[in-house]
Nucleic acid binder design. Structure first.
Lengths: 230, 230
DNA sequence: GCGACGCCTTGATCTGGATCAAGCCCGGCC
DNA sequence: GGCCGGGCTTGATCCAGATCAAGGCGTCGC
């Protein structure tokens, strides 16, 4: 099964710059973890088991407020990682991680991974670049939440998702409810807002989990806060 | 003047683990930048000049929405850095940076700094740890904004600030208006919320820029969403 | 000293999105 | 097939915080 771990690591952007021996070294320390839909991978405040790389499926990373409200920080799909920050910084798990679909991950345990970081410069550089990208994403999400209204946030999300999936069709990565939480909306508001976009002819619902961007240009305008009439 | 650049770098947490020769190397590439209160250090979308380390003064990093609303991401004081992410990732400036007080910074220009990163493992490790801390802060801020109400956010900010300044007296790092924007509030709401805390006897205003935490325990409860009566 | 401008406070009103409350629809299970 | 439960939509109402609108208060330039 190291076989499959190698394959997962190779498909991950964070490690794409690494050469064979290094990938072997990482694969050797890795363990394969599979779980059914709904499995809790880790919980907030637990010691962090290591760095996870998603091979198949999707993982929802979310925080829970004392009030019970939750916020979905990240929906990690194949090739993406989570818990890197906790591993690097030696923090406990900052959030919950739950499999949204049947999932297989490669887990690189914290201790050996940190030791590898101590000596391996290439690995360090790759991770540094990865973190820079992650900070950028986070700041983007934060600015969305703070500076845009519901329809602008949704429009931007849809544009991003369409670009990320390389077409004008989007497959939603999770339940609408969870997507809503990611955008700091309730599912009711998400539903209504999506309807507004559909009524205006900017998008078209295919089924519950899939939709199509019809007019990307106007969608961009909406994301930039134009079309106050909408 | 390399003298002073060295001193600024030495006082910066990011570089605290570096040995003499490395600090010398960084100091040699650095330039000293001073500016009066109000000076724009860089603007959003400009090419990023390099990594800034604050020596004296304070710098406000903020984003501007098309609507004109602004959001203060960070108020960097002595020993802190900004624009690291853009330098590492090779992105353009993601935000505006403005001196809130007369400020002197060390600027490590992007190109030589990136080259140093290519070869210097220690530097890389330090930066990686720094980024991990920064991501953590960002996530914390985001969760504050998403999961807490106005009074909870303010309470948490005050506790953090008091801890950071090592006592129960807090000197606000910027205008109330800018602080409000950092917490995603209007200055009106900040003013009212501060008054509620003062009326309840949890804090005490000294003057416009300074205040004292009187009851940290109850403030913690407020931050956790208790005291619904407040 | 005296304007005047910026910043902060306080009050009155407005509103986007949350919350509460039904249905509806689809898929799984008996 | 029929029932049941979870997720989505839609409608009605509510509310935290924004916005609009006055003052008050310090401080800086003259």
């Amino acid at each position: 099964m190291p076989r499959e771990i190698r394959a997962i690591l190779e498909a991950c952007g964070l490690f794409s710059a690494l050469d064979r021996p290094r990938l072997d070294m990482l694969a050797a320390m890795g363990r394969r973890r599979t779980g059914p839909r709904g499995e809790m991978i880790f919980r907030q405040d637990e010691p962090c088991p290591g760095l996870f790389v998603v091979g198949e499926g999707r993982v929802r990373i979310y925080k829970l407020a004392p009030s019970g409200k939750e916020h979905v920080l990240h929906l990690a799909g194949p090739g993406q990682t989570f818990a890197e920050v906790a591993v690097i910084g030696g923090f406990p798990c900052p959030a919950f991680a739950e499999a949204v679909e049947p999932t297989t991950c490669a887990l690189l345990p914290a201790e050996p991974f940190r030791r590898a970081l101590l000596t391996d410069h290439e690995l360090c550089r790759g991770l540094l670049a990865g973190m820079a990208g992650w900070v950028r994403t986070l700041v983007g999400l934060m600015e969305d939440i703070v500076l845009r209204d519901a329809i602008g946030r949704l429009a931007r999300y849809l544009l991003d998702a369409a670009a990320g999936q390389g077409g004008d069709e989007i497959e939603l990565p999770a339940l609408k409810r969870h997507l809503a939480s990611h955008l700091n909306l309730t599912s009711e508001t998400l539903s209504r807002t999506l309807k507004r976009l559909a009524d205006a002819g900017l998008v078209q619902g295919l089924d519950t989990r899939r939709l199509r961007v019809v007019d990307a240009d106007r969608l961009r305008d909406v994301a930039d806060g134009l079309f106050p009439e909408l």
